[in-house]
Design a protein around this nucleic acid. Structure first.
Lengths: 228, 228
DNA sequence: TGACAAGGTGTAGCATCGACACTATCTTTC
DNA sequence: GAAAGATAGTGTCGATGCTACACCTTGTCA
């Protein structure tokens, strides 16, 4: 909470600007979203997206990255602007324009979220079992999910959910969680390998009482490319 | 220009919020964009996108629609949010967040743009011959064009450029201007007709010393659908 | 060493996309 | 009214990509 030392005046009214971030990851094979329980009114006690007010000398992207880092401790993850919500009465306190982003966190970064100062609790929720949300945040999450699913089809965005190395079965599991449907193993592997986006590490990975899987890494882990 | 009668104060600094609109149409077979010559500093005399400050009790979409109507006199045209630009020093006067939109105007609405109070001139410019632009507006136009071209592929957005009735050749010309490449007539007609999105009016249209073309109308002129 | 569990592999039918050239119909001119 | 000029309108074939589908492999563990 900022402690105002002075006031800032303008010749005509200005809205407040916030960024809110839909943070996605895959937990135990389920698409999940990070939510914050609101400690203060309005909507006290309800779940909401992590976010907060834009600093006056801070770029929009930097604000979203800062909010994300404050809640998850993570930096350098995939972050993309989603949409700007600005209905006149979406926040009862004052006029608030929310520039929303979505972020993708690799499966393994089991970052235990830390409760920030203005949040009573921070927790991951399975996407298919979200609690009621404050403000218009349900609408924001729905839009983020639609964007994500659409991008699966024509970009390499799914790799942003993968740790440095992974197996083809793990990657397929990510696609299946996002699309919410089973995929054919042979067709999936054929398509992914034909894209020339991953390389074998030469190692293999044992994850149970069965044959180990080949380990792969993304050839361009830090870029999301448009394909087809 | 608003005449401030009072001042508005906040406990911490607020940015200003504007909407800017990239208005596209097809003029003489060329994709064109509406620009305003700035009458006041900063960037006085340079060309810029039509746009302006958000009223405090006005929805974002309504603000964009209002700016569009003020410059073109048109209402009810296709208008979609594009992206929000908020780099810290994009406007030298104060911190300004610009929520940008793009609008598509049918070919025939040869709305002579009217110079608004704060614009020395308003004019259509061919997209492939744009003048230097104020602020970060070139970046905005470039992004709008990319979005438009991408949507051609997987939505029925092209129909937003068409008047109530049109011929297949006219429609093909729109696709060719947007994609900046010639298309095969037979393949184009086959694809469009197979989508079941247009219907013959039964009339034909004569546009020169040659065989008249069949006239069509869009079956759902007011909606943009996702196809494929 | 046998049961179990996931890893890994190929083919054939079908639909879709792109390349490609000629006839039809109307206007204008001679 | 005949011929020239201009755009409208039409079908096929080959290549490519997508979908459906079943079995053997290789490791662990009891």
């Amino acid at each position: 909470m900022r402690i105002p030392k002075e006031t800032f005046s303008y010749p005509y009214p200005h809205p407040a600007v916030t960024t809110d971030v839909v943070v996605f990851t895959i937990i135990a094979g389920r698409l999940s979203t990070l939510l914050v329980r609101r400690a203060n009114p309005p909507h006290q006690g309800e779940w909401a997206l992590p976010g907060g007010f834009l600093d006056i000398d801070e770029d929009l992207d930097a604000c979203a990255a800062r909010e994300l880092a404050e809640e998850t401790g993570l930096r350098g993850v995939y972050l993309e602007q989603l949409y700007t919500f600005g209905a006149t009465h979406r926040d009862p306190r004052e006029r608030v324009i929310s520039v929303t982003y979505y972020a993708l966190i690799p499966q393994d970064s089991l970052a235990t979220p830390r409760a920030a100062s203005d949040a009573a609790a921070v927790a991951w929720h399975a996407f298919d079992a979200l609690p009621p949300l404050a403000f218009d945040h349900e609408q924001i999450i729905t839009m983020a999910h639609r964007r994500l699913v659409a991008k699966l089809d024509y970009s390499t965005i799914a790799f942003q959910f993968m740790p440095e190395t992974f197996t083809l079965s793990e990657l397929q599991c990510v696609y299946e969680s996002l699309l919410n449907q089973k995929l054919d193993k042979r067709n999936f592997r054929k398509r992914i390998l034909s894209l020339d986006l991953i390389a074998e590490t030469g190692r293999s990975r044992r994850t149970g009482n069965h044959r180990p899987a080949r380990e792969y890494r993304a050839k361009h882990p830090n870029t999301v490319e448009i394909i087809k």
